Amino acid sequence: MWIDVLLLANLAKQSSHGYELRKRVEEGTGYALSNNSLYPALRRFSEAGAVLRNPEPQEGRPPRNVYTITEVGRELLHDMLADLPAELAGDEPEFLARLAHFDWLTVDERAVVLDARRHALEQRRDRLIALERGSSEGWGQEALREAARRVHAELDWLAGIHARATGAPPISAPPQEKERR
């Protein structure tokens, strides 16, 4: 779904043909985007009325399709940005695709997305802590500690992002969690 968000967000900035769109997404994210992901998504968007596909003539070559977002596509993009389902909230690209386009969202919509991510991270943190307690000393426990450290760091970062995105005071980890670090 994050690919859909990035494709529509790029088309909202500028109409383009498929190759150009793929390159912009790749340059903006660092993720490689295959034609097997790109063109089926564009076809779906076209069939749903979210984008218009206009053939552009090229000298000595077949016409290339230029894609333009429609008002339906802008509404779809907004709805995808404002919704971060629990099953996707733990996925980093899903969250970052939305965060990168927070300027499309209201303060309340930003808070919903941030809260979904925070909840997913808290669940991951709790699982890691339980696994660490149940493991014997060794490399496995070292890996669990590092994974937990990364989750704690993102939770701290997320609290600052929440404050910037909503104007609300930062949400911090419960005191017992801070003491455990």
Rank of each mutant, 00 (worst) to 15 (best):
residue 15 S to A: 15
residue 17 H to S: 09
residue 19 Y to S: 13
residue 24 R to T: 06
residue 25 V to Q: 00
residue 26 E to R: 03
residue 31 Y to P: 01
residue 31 Y to H: 14
residue 32 A to C: 12
residue 32 A to R: 13
residue 35 N to C: 05
residue 36 N to S: 14
residue 37 S to F: 03
residue 40 P to H: 03
residue 41 A to G: 05
residue 48 A to L: 15
residue 50 A to T: 00
residue 50 A to F: 02
residue 55 P to N: 03
residue 59 E to S: 10
residue 60 G to V: 02
residue 62 P to L: 13
residue 64 R to I: 14
residue 64 R to H: 11
residue 66 V to S: 05
residue 69 I to W: 02
residue 73 G to Q: 01
residue 76 L to Y: 00
residue 78 H to I: 03
residue 78 H to C: 05
residue 83 D to H: 14
residue 84 L to W: 03
residue 84 L to R: 07
residue 86 A to G: 04
residue 90 G to L: 07
residue 92 E to A: 09
residue 92 E to C: 02
residue 93 P to S: 10
residue 93 P to W: 10
residue 94 E to C: 05
residue 94 E to Y: 01
residue 95 F to M: 06
residue 95 F to Y: 15
residue 95 F to Q: 02
residue 100 A to W: 03
residue 101 H to G: 00
residue 107 V to Q: 13
residue 119 H to D: 14
residue 119 H to M: 07
residue 119 H to V: 05
residue 123 Q to K: 14
residue 124 R to T: 13
residue 128 L to Q: 06
residue 129 I to S: 12
residue 129 I to D: 15
residue 130 A to C: 08
residue 130 A to Q: 13
residue 130 A to F: 08
residue 130 A to W: 05
residue 136 S to T: 15
residue 138 G to E: 07
residue 139 W to H: 10
residue 140 G to Y: 14
residue 143 A to E: 15
residue 143 A to D: 14
residue 147 A to F: 09
residue 149 R to G: 07
residue 150 R to V: 08
